[in-house]
Design a protein around this nucleic acid. Structure first.
Lengths: 176, 176
DNA sequence: TACTTCGTTTAGTAAATACTAAACGAAGTA
DNA sequence: TACTTCGTTTAGTATTTACTAAACGAAGTA
């Protein structure tokens, strides 16, 4: 029993949509990436419209965030006003740029807010039961340290010029 | 200028809610965890209701998923029918159990589907332009290998009995 | 037995998010 | 100039997700 190539692509696109949604991204984003990823040539917005069934407006915005994440790249042909897009195929590079992207987000704002809380506790400018303050202080501090560890890891990964198989297996060895 | 302890807790809870939402979890979940995390004693559902303003129903379900993730633990006092909950304070343990949890999810189903796609391509049961099939095959295979690498990493982390500061810094050294 | 006191489930609502359709501006072309 | 052809923005809609309120069942207590 044979499968037609377009059908196969369709299934693959479907899967990436699911995966995308699972990671908290719009499922359309996964679909767009999938279509680009399976194309041997850069595609225009209209090409993507055709292959995903989404609207140009939606694709316009989502492809932009994909580009910000470094998962796709915009290019243009000489003498052609259209923009073209192609998928980044080095996933490790993508991870790095996604991590980088996340650093200037509201996530960081919330994180800074925790740090601020800790600051108040350390400055002794919090009124209330002494023992409880001490308890809260230790908990918040522990959380902060955890965040710092994650942050260090993240930064280390970002700085790597290449997080290829070799590095991954190095890590695996250390963890063994 | 001093801050009252309850207010400080409030702010902290707010921050964790944001962080929770950022990672794709309901913000209420973050709030519940925060309240438990800042409490020196286990809390009952009603205690949590009081401190978060959420409904018992909502808390009932969300605290359960928190427990499944290993972020909180359910306990009970002798001669008291109430359930009590307390926060896991070893975050590394939490990460492990979250990763473990994620392995039996629809994420894995989608991932299996990609593997299936690859299987069809390898079995030669796909009809269409030969060159294009070859191209698609290589792309899908590359993605599959990437997933496998991630999977190995995940499993390695899960297997660690302790992912403490020491291991993290080991990793950092390797990456340097 | 009837009566509390828990946690859970359910059905419906509110809020957030992804998306569409259509208007628009910029930049090229006749 | 008017007329296309792009990508983007906007305003509104649909879908999903988080949550509430209330009914319920289990298990204790009088």
């Amino acid at each position: 029993m044979t499968t037609k190539l377009p059908e196969l692509k369709q299934d693959f696109t479907e899967s990436l949509s699911q995966i995308s949604r699972f990671w908290g991204f719009p499922k359309g984003m996964g679909a767009i990436f999938a279509v680009l990823y399976l194309s041997s040539t850069p595609l225009s917005l209209d090409d993507i419209v055709e292959q995903t069934g989404l609207t140009k407006g939606a694709i316009s915005t989502e492809v932009r965030t994909l580009a910000r994440m470094g998962l796709v790249h915009r290019s243009s042909k000489l003498g052609d006003r259209k923009d073209y897009y192609e998928a980044e195929i080095d996933f490790y590079a993508s991870i790095r740029s996604i991590l980088k992207e996340r650093q200037n987000s509201e996530f960081d704002r919330a994180l800074g807010s925790v740090r601020e809380t800790l600051g108040k506790l350390e400055a002794g400018s919090v009124s209330g039961n002494e023992a409880e303050i001490q308890f809260v202080y230790e908990r918040v501090k522990a959380l902060q340290e955890f965040f710092n560890a994650i942050d260090s890891l993240t930064n280390a990964v970002i700085k790597l010029d290449k997080l290829g198989i070799s590095n991954v297996s190095k890590i695996l060895n250390v963890l063994k």
